[in-house]
């Protein structure tokens, strides 16, 4: 039998419990907000520091100038010079990573025995886990000397070696996302194709790949984003010399390599040279943001379909 005081006690207990629950929820929410704050922080820093830069360098010059000599007395700030290095090294990397990653994903998802898959996937994961500075070392001291035997006169720093190693580095990312997308294609669809007399290969390329298309596209786009943002391989192996070129056998700085070079030096905070790295970083951030959002959207689409 409950007396009044017992009921009052229980109510008080319930109120305190509700307060505690609310407090916990708020704490968890504020943790989740850190991710938002990080993005806002990135946007704020990049924009505010770039603003200082663009007050002195017109944005038109930044986009159209064909020289990048921020540290000379006759300073030029044409981002296209750095972008050409980024574009060339990324193109080499993707020319390797996209076909190889796709073939690997199709092979692992549609052909390989479960045993092969069980061995191959961890190996690919280990490959993906190797620090990029180590890949940079590998590009400079192993791949480039090898290439120099094939291409005489290839400089020690070059976009080709860096691009190739970057491509191999990106393969596991592309193959893993692509394979996920292909394995999400329902078995019923494959059986429909087999029942019509199709081979495994026909089923893989005429049914499974088209069905997983948005997932594959997401994998490629995220691969592009990774290539554009990759820093240490190009900083170590492609050289630090700004060079407006699309020739893979030349040495050229990328956007990322330039940022590393300036940050390693001792430029005073607030100098124009120092501000350039934020402008370059902003360009990098906006490019990868575009790709990331496209990749996210495509990935969500294939997840919703099945």
């Amino acid at each position: 039998m409950s007396t009044h005081s017992q009921i009052a006690g229980r109510l008080a207990h319930r109120r305190s419990r509700q307060r505690k629950e609310k407090l916990i929820e708020l704490t968890l929410l504020s943790a989740a907000l850190v991710a938002i704050a990080t993005t806002l922080g990135i946007v704020f820093i990049l924009f505010s520091e770039s603003l200082v830069f663009f007050r002195q360098v017109p944005i038109w010059d930044f986009l159209t100038d064909t020289q990048w000599t921020p540290l000379f007395s006759d300073a030029h700030f044409g981002i296209s010079v750095l972008l050409s290095g980024t574009l060339t090294s990324s193109a080499i990397a993707l020319a390797i990573a996209i076909p190889m990653g796709t073939v690997l994903a199709v092979y692992l998802s549609e052909f390989a025995s479960p045993r092969t898959r069980e061995i191959a996937k961890p190996v690919l994961e280990l490959l993906a886990g190797i620090p990029t500075i180590v890949f940079g070392y590998f590009a400079l001291f192993f791949v480039t000397p090898l290439l120099q035997k094939i291409i005489p006169g290839l400089p020690g720093f070059n976009l080709l070696g860096a691009g190739i190693v970057m491509g191999v580095m990106i393969v596991p990312y592309i193959s893993s996302i692509s394979e996920d997308a292909m394995r999400a294609v329902p078995v019923l669809l494959r059986e429909g194709s087999y029942a019509l007399g199709a081979t495994r290969l026909q089923t893989a390329f005429k049914v499974v790949v088209p069905a997983a298309f948005s997932g594959l596209a997401a994998a490629y786009i995220l691969g592009i984003s990774r290539a554009v943002g990759e820093t240490m391989i190009v900083a170590v192996a492609a050289g630090m010399q700004p060079n407006l070129t699309f020739n893979p056998t030349e040495s050229a700085a990328t956007v990322t390599a330039y940022i590393v070079q300036v940050a390693k030096g001792d430029l005073p905070h607030g100098s124009l040279g120092y501000q350039t790295i934020f402008a370059a970083g902003l360009a990098l951030f906006l490019i990868t943001l575009l790709f990331n959002l496209a990749g996210y959207w495509l990935r969500r689409r294939y997840r919703e379909t099945y």
Binding site: I42, G229, I259, I277, G281, Y296
Partner: peptide
């Protein structure tokens, strides 16, 4: 999802 794809060097700038 976007943060996961931001190049690490941008975190350095932040």
């Amino acid at each position: 999802n976007n943060l996961a794809g931001v190049p690490s060097i941008v975190y350095g700038l932040l």
